[in-house]
Design a binder for these strands. Structure first.
Lengths: 224, 224
DNA sequence: CTTTTTTATTACAATTCTGTAATAATTGAA
DNA sequence: TTCAATTATTACAGAATTGTAATAAAAAAG
């Protein structure tokens, strides 16, 4: 379930938004002001922040800037003000969207989902169990420690992790790794590569928890 | 300069938007309807599409779906309708934003810039001259042809391309490639790696157009 | 012009990668 | 259980990678 931090000092409005979003399947946490909001943000993990731009006890723009400096959680501004300058200022501190009151509930949900969707697309890391690929640097780590993979091992792992939970047939894998570059490799080569990858990323290669064999079909990366 | 495709059948409005955006430094191409719009989109390259949802000769939603199926150019809906269902439908076909008329020019610009910014962040390819790194697959191509890089060469190239136009000191590069994994390498090693990369990605390694030497400082990837 | 510093190039062993083959283990079916 | 098919493992050469050292070339300084 996606969790949302709502920072809004208008209690009735907050209750209304909160109720509606809960009904849509979001987990909503409500903070009444800047102090609470920032504290909550720093202690819990949220998928999205809904932020009233005009709080009584502080500046919404500053909160947004702070949140953006701490990571890349999407921030959507809520505002009564129809002031255009305000909107521009909101985007300038890195906001992802800006919605004027009065809110139309279904549009609010659509915009939240849009922000979440766009956001997940910008991931540069692929994770599975305790193994992380940082595709922006080309580095693979297991439990935070770097794992050295060869060029082909790296591409094979990327293929698995970007299709986490999905079965990849031997044919599909061979195509992606070899056929596209015009080469043909023997039937057993993939078995060997799987073995080599398992040796490097599994706790126990003899009992793989990440790269599962689907007999007669292919392999699958699982995260559990 | 960022190029924008404006698909809008209300001529005076189009002229007004077009004029304003041009003044803001965008290159605006105006299409009066679905047919022209799609044709233009398929023949030219745009950084963003502004799309009237209610065109006389077709359905804006369908155009958006088509554009999104062809790639991931950001699409922003423009609409007179304050209909909430319409907004939701817009996001459901993959729109990046949805702006109701009347437009406030500066907000329009802010939202366009926001869409462009979010978009560039989700790039999985790094380009420089005719060399492209597809970080989602771990593949490097030059003029569309695959270039085989070793693991370290790949990481070095990523470092350069994700800092295109920025000078990287020898120290910084060595840190990124070696020191972080606790190793220490000789002073000349980087020279050799630069040479090897140039041999693989430059037209003429003796006269590098991509990986430039900044004497006394380090290296820089340039795109011109 | 000469010297010094910096960068480029070449060549070289040690290591790793890559694909194949042979063999072993496992699984599912007869 | 027995057999056949599939997958895993090991071992091995040829190729590529990696880091170093020696030398050459280029650029800046004196």
């Amino acid at each position: 379930m996606r969790s949302i931090l709502l920072i809004e000092d208008d209690d009735p409005l907050a209750k209304s938004i909160s109720g509606f979003l809960s009904g849509e399947g979001f987990k909503v946490t409500h903070a009444r002001g800047q102090t609470d909001g920032v504290k909550l943000f720093e202690t819990e993990n949220f998928d999205c922040v809904l932020l009233d731009i005009s709080l009584e006890d502080g500046n919404g723009l500053a909160i947004c800037a702070l949140i953006k400096s701490l990571g890349d959680t999407p921030v959507i501004f809520l505002t009564a003000s129809a002031d255009e300058t305000c909107t521009v200022a909101g985007f300038e501190v890195g906001a992802d969207d800006y919605i004027g009151k009065p809110f139309r509930p279904r549009e609010l949900v659509a915009r939240i989902k849009n922000a979440l969707r766009k956001h997940s697309g910008s991931q540069t890391t692929l994770k599975c169990a305790d193994v992380v690929i940082d595709t922006a640097r080309g580095v693979v780590t297991k439990n935070g420690e770097e794992v050295f993979l060869s060029a082909l091992e790296y591409r094979l792992l990327i293929l698995f992790f970007s299709n986490k939970g999905i079965l990849l047939t031997r044919e599909r894998i061979a195509d992606e790794l070899w056929t596209l570059s015009g080469e043909f490799v023997g039937d057993n080569t993939l078995n060997v590569y799987i073995k080599r990858l398992r040796d490097k990323i599994e706790d126990d290669a003899a009992e793989p928890k990440i790269l599962k064999t689907i007999r007669g079909m292919g392999y699958k990366a699982v995260d559990e």
